[in-house]
Design a protein around this nucleic acid. Structure first.
Length: 468
DNA sequence: ATAGACGTGCCTGTCAGATC
DNA sequence: GATCTGACAGGCACGTCTAT
């Protein structure tokens, strides 16, 4: 089906029902009460089945044939149909996003040009230099009954996406009971056959281990190496850990990819909504989960374009323009770490030219980088700017002054300047002491600076004695 | 709730330079 | 040349954070 918003009830209302019922459940004091409640609900359902569902089944059996037999209208309304395999059946939803299709700020058709640049962040055993082809990527997101990766956690919905010449396609599988799991997994395996890399968010730690366990429990033996993997959690953290309130996918997509979901069921509610569906058979509970999973997959594709562009160096100007210094520094460091030294250097250069130095640690970190590579002439102005900033701050950092003291003592050999910065650092340390609660740390810091000042004074006096 | 990846901070060992 | 001190890199332990 083509993308359309045909939700039968506002997600908020469904969400409210679940929350209300959870709250009610928490008041239950004992197991007997809960069992009693379940029993009475079950009886009431048997005596008074939801009219709409019964009608749907009848309608289904008469107006649908083959694949969709017995699929309730509330599923069919969002494009869900039954899929048959040699291992049995499960439910499948397929959505095509014809190009051009923009998800947030990125055009998904750009995956075609961006994918090869993702190689430095892709993990694949024994195939390090392999070129990543866009049509070999499988974007994956599962909805499971819990958070653990043990055998008790069941993926009830597997969403995956892939690119074709003309569209980005999302497919979502759903099992109505555990007996359908093997069919669902076999369908996923079929789609993994011609793919080289999974694309996920924390999927190396979560989705893939969960699925691996389910494959084993369903009788598949592990053969060969794991598929390649591009997991965007860690690159996202590398760039945005200090500038975003969190690096959850939902935060990243709003703050950095320009995506607004509107009403969205949080992933944490997915297990409860699935249990609601299992308990009363009403597909409406899962509409929000379908939408959530679908959007997660689209966001993965958008992340792919974002990082692909970053690694290609094609959007340097935009990044430099839009990024605050801290983020620009982290981006450059990340590029350097992934072997993109020339791209990184370009960003470091622009950063060094920036006049304003704020509270973030980027200026000192950049100076430290220049120092490590012996580029003292580039480190010096950064230390000086940072020292001026520190002197004006209420809770000053001493690092820049200490670095300057070391530089003038050991490199520039101007002991008077070294003493000046050491004394200034000591002065700042005494001013800052009131703000540090750790008494031991405060004392050690002060004593180290006093030793430095004393040593420099002695060195200066010896030098002047020698001259005279 | 669960497990793994990664960043941070601390500790230790090594090396280089300064001093006697 | 011997000794001392400071700088720095590497390793380890621990804490944080993410997925549902």
């Amino acid at each position: 089906m083509r993308r359309s918003d045909r939700r039968s009830r506002p997600a908020r209302q469904r969400l409210g029902n679940v929350v209300a019922q959870k709250h009610e459940g928490s008041r239950m004091s004992g197991l007997r009460e809960r069992l009693g409640r379940l029993r009475s609900e079950s009886v009431s359902q048997q005596s008074q089945p939801p009219a709409s569902l019964e009608e749907e089944k009848i309608a289904d059996a008469t107006d649908q044939e083959g694949e969709s037999f017995a699929v309730p209208k509330a599923f069919r309304s969002i494009g869900v149909a039954q899929k048959e395999t040699e291992f049995g059946s499960f439910l499948l939803r397929k959505i095509e996003y014809s190009f051009p299709y923009r998800h947030g700020t990125h055009e998904l058709a750009d995956l075609h040009g961006c994918s090869p640049f993702l190689q430095p962040i892709a993990f694949r055993q024994n195939k390090k230099d392999e070129v990543i082809a866009p049509e070999h990527l499988l974007f994956l997101d599962t909805e499971t009954t819990g958070l653990g990766v043990g055998t008790g956690n069941v993926p009830f919905m597997i969403g995956f996406g892939y690119i074709t010449e003309t569209a980005f396609v999302v497919e979502q599988t759903l099992i109505r009971h555990p007996g359908e799991e093997k069919a669902m997994l076999s369908y996923l395996l079929g789609h993994m056959k011609n793919k080289s890399h999974l694309v996920t968010y924390n999927g190396r730690t979560f989705d893939w281990p969960v699925l691996t366990n389910r494959f084993i429990l369903n009788g598949w033996r592990k053969s060969g190496a794991d598929p390649g993997h591009i997991d965007f959690l860690h690159p996202s953290r590398a760039l945005w850990r200090t500038t975003l309130p969190s690096c959850r996918l939902s935060t990243v997509e709003v703050e950095r990819l320009g995506i607004q979901r509107g009403e969205d069921v949080p992933g944490s509610l997915a297990p409860a909504l699935y249990f609601q569906y299992l308990s009363d058979g009403n597909p409406d509970h899962l509409h929000g989960v379908y939408t959530h999973n679908e959007k997660d997959i689209l966001t993965l594709a958008s992340l792919c374009v974002h990082f692909g562009l970053l690694l290609s160096g094609r959007n340097d100007a935009e990044i430099i323009e839009a990024s605050e210094s801290e983020e620009l520094f982290r981006t450059a460091s990340w590029l350097e770490q992934h072997g993109e030294a020339i791209l990184a250097e370009r960003l470091f250069d622009r950063l060094g030219e920036r006049e304003v130095i704020g509270e973030g640690g980027w200026s000192l970190a950049l100076a430290a980088r220049f120092k490590r590579s012996g580029q003292y002439a580039r480190a010096l102005p950064l230390w000086k700017k940072a020292s001026e900033y520190a002197e004006a701050a209420t809770a000053p950092k001493l690092d820049a002054h200490v670095e300057l003291a070391m530089y003038f003592e050991h490199r520039d050999k101007r002991l008077d300047m070294a003493l000046h910065y050491a004394e200034k650092a000591l002065e700042l340390a005494l001013r800052r002491a009131r703000l540090i609660s750790d008494a031991k740390k405060r004392r050690e810091e002060k004593e180290a600076l006093q030793r430095r000042v004393a040593r420099l004074r002695e060195k200066i006096s010896r030098a002047s004695e020698r001259k005279s």
